[in-house]
Design a protein around this nucleic acid. Structure first.
Lengths: 235, 235
DNA sequence: TCACGCGGTTGATCCATCTCAATGGCCGGC
DNA sequence: GCCGGCCATTGAGATGGATCAACCGCGTGA
């Protein structure tokens, strides 16, 4: 059931935010919410895609199992993020699998409804393109990070993304457990642990699921350091 | 100037292929081609995006300069591939830079024209979504490869993508120089060289810009091997 | 209450890749 | 034809991260 609060989250989601209110309302009325338990699969890689999903509550992990059996986390989403649009609009199969990493609640919209709406209202298209664009952006920056940054730098950037402020001190809450953070950042849990240890000398203290950053601007400086620079510092 | 052959390439591009012929024609007439020399910048990361680009001829590299100065290649495109859609439709800035890696010719369409067309013809939207989806797919699989495969496996997969056949022997031409291939695969030129050397024992012989694959199916097997398996083989 | 399992940390070691350096082949200009 | 520069390859050493193993703290359930 969609509560008023749920409705608000959905309306502010990337998918619906740029949509005229009446259209969003129509879509929502034709959609269902569904709850998943932690660990439950939402869909599998290769499943036929008929739904677009919007996270109302909780955390969802998108990942791919590569032929050699390794798991690669492609995204970790929480409230307001939508996923599955691209595949669902094409009536294609999902290129990734989705799993609930906490108990969670999703709003699921039949892609067919959206497609029909698109035919009559072009602004729906723009909204859909906008949300796909967000995913594209996120992936581009993920590729950049994987290719051009060390583990500790990726962790630092991850923390900065959680940070509400631009400078000064700040404490952030780690949104999900460290194993998943490690996966999201493309490393092993042990390496994440060591990355945190290394960040300690950059003024980051992690305790439980909280990270205290002494100086946000300084940490950003660390992310922007290249290897040569960090080497010269070590001399 | 658009020759008949150029026109054909554009019509078969991801962007136009799913578009009704009359619409594609309209767009093409309102667009210009432009040639770039090897090494010339097409646009910079952060430039205001007003054009959608379609490669008619040659090769284009999309890349990001990360804060620490390292370059991360996000894509390398040739004829029929379009890029810049997402940013241009939003009137946003390009999240990546584009450079001609060979002399090349592009068809450049004002995003504004496409947007106007979308308002009257919803099928245009679907075509745009489809092309954005292709980019998304490519990025997802790039992330997977970076996270879950060794360098030599990524190189092998790159070769297999170039392969026109499913099994047996095959010779492929490396489409651009090795430095760029290395960048595309997220490694240094030296590492690419060593990866080729390692693939020699999988039946791959590289000479100049040609790679001879003795057994395509066997190479695919190598890609799907995980580290444990290759380790046990070494014993 | 205690044993157990799980998430997380730490240590030791190994392996892949980066970096720096040297060399060899190819091509274009003179 | 020769020279210089660029690309590609190879070697040696440094480094980051993975892997394997041990260990700690905590919560849970018998």
């Amino acid at each position: 059931m969609l509560t008023t609060a749920d409705r608000k989250v959905a309306m502010e989601s990337i998918l619906f935010a740029t949509l005229p209110a009446d259209l969003a309302e129509t879509l929502m009325q034709r959609s269902a919410t569904r709850s998943y338990q932690r660990g439950e699969m939402i869909f599998l890689q290769g499943d036929l895609a008929s739904m677009v999903h919007i996270v109302i509550e909780g955390w969802v992990k998108l990942f791919r199992i590569s032929p050699n059996g390794a798991e690669a986390v492609v995204g970790v989403f929480t409230r307001g993020r939508s996923f599955g649009e691209a595949a669902a609009f094409r009536g294609d199969v999902y290129p990734v699998a989705a799993e609930a990493v906490t108990d969670c609640k999703l709003l699921q919209v039949r892609a067919q409804f959206i497609l029909e709406l698109m035919k009559s209202r072009p602004e729906v298209c723009i909204a859909m393109l906008a949300s796909t664009y967000r995913h594209l952006q996120a992936l581009v920056s993920q590729v950049e990070q994987l290719k051009a940054q060390t583990g500790a730098q990726r962790v630092a950037e991850f923390l900065l993304d959680l940070c509400p402020v631009q400078d000064g001190a700040c404490t952030v809450t780690l949104p999900y457990d460290k194993i998943l953070i490690a996966g999201r950042l493309g490393m092993q849990p042990e390496s994440l642990s060591r990355a945190f240890a290394r960040l300690r000398e950059e003024g980051v203290v992690v305790k439980q699921n909280h990270a205290a950053i002494a100086d946000v601007a300084k940490l950003r400086g660390y992310v922007e350091e290249d290897r040569a620079a960090s080497w010269s510092k070590a001399q």
